[in-house]
């Protein structure tokens, strides 16, 4: 039979972007080990509502670790204690009876808080907008097999393309840098022949946008790789840097 636990929660409440925010505490009994972390928060909210208190807002959608909506910082770790797991896929069996759990939103100037644990990540959209695409119009594509791509190359591009855009890398980075996210998209597209043509413009535009959004510089802490739910390697950042310097030097 499944284990039940008591968990002491401390979570961030902030009524809007201009509110200063504070922590609230609540002790949940009967936390089932099979619950996901977000289901535990659902249960918390059910109890709060029945006690006529305000539920705590948090972002989620797929609950399968793929949409990138969820992004809580739990006891100081983005997506909680396990590596390569998004918080929606984190299960309570990773906790023990009586544990104290602090939940905070990702904190970064470029991710302003909307409410409680929900933040505005539109800065990520704008980074993609700056150049994270291949300029091909619908209908103008060539036959799919016209350009063969080595399997290794395609697999390598895929490894970067799996980024779910959750922002954990920013949350965990001591500098609040978005280099892993930005680098992953640049590396994905620049590695493929389809993305080759625009590689220089892409990297320059995306790096500029990333800076404009107010993210920090990358000091090579590699904490982003440790918290990334899909394990994007900081090689993405190296690729971005090389492509950027190449673009500048060649002046293309």
């Amino acid at each position: 039979m499944s284990k039940e636990m008591t968990i002491h929660l401390k979570y961030w409440k902030q009524n809007g972007p201009n509110d200063t925010g504070h922590f609230e505490e609540y002790t949940l009994d009967n936390v089932n080990e099979h619950m996901s972390f977000l289901e535990m928060l659902d249960v918390l909210n059910e109890e709060l509502m029945l006690e006529d208190k305000e539920p705590v807002e948090f972002d989620y959608d797929c609950r399968e670790g793929i949409c990138g909506s969820c992004n809580l910082v739990i006891n100081g770790q983005a997506h909680g204690p396990k590596q390569r797991v998004a918080v929606c896929q984190l299960h309570m069996r990773n906790y023990n009876d009586g544990d104290h759990v602090t939940i905070e939103p990702p904190r970064a100037a470029a991710f302003p808080v909307i409410k409680d644990l929900v933040v505005d990540r539109s800065s990520f959209d704008r980074i993609i907008e700056a150049g994270g695409y291949v300029s091909v119009k619908t209908g103008s594509a060539v036959e799919a097999n016209a350009i063969p791509i080595e399997k290794e190359k395609s697999d390598a591009a895929f490894d970067y393309a799996t980024c779910i855009g959750c922002g954990a890398c920013v949350a965990a980075c001591p500098n609040a840098s978005a280099s892993l996210f930005t680098g992953a998209k640049i590396a994905h597209l620049n590695k493929l022949p389809q993305g080759e043509v625009e590689r220089s413009n892409r990297v320059v535009a995306m790096v500029e946008q990333m800076e404009e959004e107010g993210f920090g510089d990358c000091s090579n802490f590699a904490e982003c790789e440790a918290v990334c739910p899909v394990g994007i390697s900081i090689s993405a950042i190296a690729e971005m840097r090389k492509d950027y310097m190449k673009a500048v030097v060649s002046g293309e």
Binding site: Y133, V134, G139, S140, A141, P148, S154, H188, L189
Partner: peptide, 15 residues
Amino acid sequence: EIIDQAVAQGVPFAR
């Protein structure tokens, strides 16, 4: 045509 379009966009299908 969908496959052509997706490949042109840089979708890394299995190869």
